[in-house]
């Protein structure tokens, strides 16, 4: 149980995929324009990561080393397509707003990275812990970034169609640049600097 907790906690801060490992920044930059997207993407991402870590750790002793990467990619691509079809069928509104970014999870290097670096070398229990930890790490990073971008970029906070509040003075004149890709770079850059300054350092 000790190693389960350790593997779980590691992904949340110490090897946070976004702020420490700096992996998967492409989907993070692209999707973090609204809180809805961040939540939807994090859930879809965590489902795929969890399933891929479980499957890969189960077959880890049988995968021939030479074809391991193609095997991982086929498994991940299959899982992503399943999630994509499920979303289109059962939650069409979310599928519409995440649009092309769901298929992009296939090339999200966090998932392939965890498959190669962790799930292919560790037991299924530990891989589940790792997937949950990394998933939560990704989720809070996404939510933090999209919260800042949405507040500054639209001047108000909406969650799943419900209006929560308007930022005084920004509601009418939002800083639209924060919704554009460069705004995402600003936000991530400042957050990274902040975390480094606070002394959260790389630690695998």
């Amino acid at each position: 149980m000790h190693s389960f907790t350790k593997n779980f906690l590691r992904g949340i801060i110490r090897s946070n995929p976004t702020f420490i490992l700096l992996l998967g920044l492409c989907p993070t930059l692209a999707v973090s324009t609204s809180l809805d997207n961040a939540v939807g993407m994090s859930v879809a991402f965590t489902c795929v990561l969890l399933a891929s870590n479980i499957i890969i750790s189960l077959i880890r002793n049988h995968v021939p080393v030479r074809v391991r990467i193609p095997v991982f990619i086929v498994i991940i691509a299959t899982l992503v397509t399943i999630v994509d079809l499920m979303l289109q069928g059962f939650i069409p509104a979310l599928s519409k707003s995440l649009g092309m970014y769901i298929p992009l999870i296939v090339v999200n290097c966090i998932i392939l990275g965890r498959a190669e670096a962790f799930a292919s070398k560790n037991s299924t229990t530990n891989s589940i812990a790792d997937a949950l930890g990394i998933g939560i790490g990704f989720a809070w990073a996404m939510i933090l970034i999209s919260l800042i971008r949405q507040l500054l970029g639209t001047g108000k906070l909406d969650l799943f169609g419900r209006h929560l509040f308007t930022v005084p003075g920004l509601g009418d004149n939002p800083v639209a640049i924060f919704l554009l890709p460069m705004g995402a770079f600003f936000v991530i850059g400042v957050l990274l600097a902040l975390f480094r300054w606070m002394g959260v350092s790389t630690g695998e």
Binding site: H62, V63, V67, R68
Partner: peptide, 17 residues
């Protein structure tokens, strides 16, 4: 990781997947 890395095994494995 699997030990049988030579011959057709990798091909068969990938096809199966």
């Amino acid at each position: 990781m699997g030990t049988r890395t030579n011959g057709f095994f990798p091909v068969i494995f990938l096809t199966l997947i």
